[in-house]
Amino acid sequence: MSDVAVQHGIAGAYEPSLFGTYSKKIGMWLFLLSDTLTFGALLFAYSYGRISTPGWPTPFGKESITNATIMTACLLSSSLTMVLGVLAARRGDRSWTRNWILATMFFGAAFIVLHGMEWTNLIHEGMTPFTNPWAPNVPQFGGTFFTLTGMHMLHVTIGVIYLGVIALRKKFLPILLGIWLIAWLTIPSNNVFHYGVHTLLVGCIVAAAILFLKPKDYDSHDVEVAGLYWHFVDLVWMFIFPLVYLMSTKVV
C-alpha cells in the first residue's frame, strides 16, 4: 500500500494506490481485462457458429487431439515454471529467475512449434480461411479457426519475446535474430510460416527499440508483470482447447 510511496523516499507525497499495488501491475491487469474481451469476442464468434450450424466439421482425429493435449500440458507446465520464476525473483535469486524464465520460454516455444505443425497439417489437407474439405457448406470454419488460434499463437509469440527481453535483455536480440533467420531459411516457401516467422523480426525490432531507448535492469516487479501476461495466454488456451478441439473431435 503506502510502502510504494515509502520506497521512493517520499512518504506522504502520494496517496496509497486504490488497488493496493504498483502501477505497472495495475496497467497489465487492465490490459488483460481488455484482452479478455478481445478473445471473448473471437471465442463467441467461433462457438456461435459451432452451435448454430448443422454439419460443423469435426476434423480433429486422434493425432490432433493428442497433439493439442501435449500443447495444453506444455502451457500448463510453462505457467508452473513462470510462477517459480516469480518466486525466485522475489527471493532476489537472479540466476534461478533466469533459469525458470528460460524454461517457460522453452515450453512456450514448444507450444508454438507444435501448433505450427498442426496448422501445416490442416492446410495440407486443404483447409483455407475460406474453404475446408470436410464440410463445403460450412466455409466459416476455416476463417474463425485461423483467426482465433492465430491470434492466440501471436500472443504466445509476443509472450516468449517479452520473457526473453526480461530474462536476457540485450543478449536476447542476437538469439532472436538467429532464430528468425534459421526458421525463415529452413521452412519451405510453400508453408504459411515461411512468412509467419517475420513476426519474430518485427518483435526483434520492437524489443531492440525498447532495450536501446529505455535501457534498465528488470526487477522482480517486471518479472511478476510478465508472469501475469504469460498466465493470461495460458488461461485463454484453457477455453480454446475445449471449444475448438474437444467439441470437434472425430471419433471413429
Binding site: S79, L80, M82, V83, G227, L228, H231, D234, L235, M238
Partner: peptide, 10 residues
Amino acid sequence: KSALIIGYFM
C-alpha cells in the same frame, strides 16, 4: 481451471 490459474498463478 481458469479460476485456479487466476487465483493462484496470477
